[in-house]
Amino acid sequence: MHLIIGGAFQGKLDYAVKKYGLSEGDIFECSESGEIEFKKCVNHLERFTLGCVRRGLEPAEVFMSSPELWRDRILICEDISSGVVPVDAVMRAWREANGRLLNWLSPQAESVTRLFCGLPQVLK
């Protein structure tokens, strides 16, 4: 699994498309419904985590329960960890659940890349 992270609009998907030669059909775009389909690339994992939090699920546990589904996938997630602590309890829970998921995923990733203003920084 390759993990790609970074702030909003930093070029994470553009990087993945170019690096792994993805076409539109290879990409699953998560929504806040909490549904997920493990296509070759899963984009906006942070929306999936928000969906999980709203349904009372721990996103990291969803991943733990079925490693075979995502082991050879490209996962893209926005880093939402660096703002002011949100006033809203759901947003607070979201921020923490997203962080826990990334912390759990990164040791299992073959590579971890952070995008900064369109430039990749290989963290692992």
Binding site: G7, A8, F9, Q10, D79, I80, S82, P86, C117, G118
Partner: peptide
């Protein structure tokens, strides 16, 4: 760098973030 907070913004603020990222990426390139 204003891109890593846990907040869902209105279209105006989100449009500004997207716009600034566009400029940042053009300059970084």
């Amino acid at each position: 760098y204003i891109y890593s907070d846990a907040e869902i913004y209105d279209a105006v603020t989100d449009g500004y973030k997207r716009g600034l990222a566009y400029v940042d990426r053009a300059l970084a390139q």
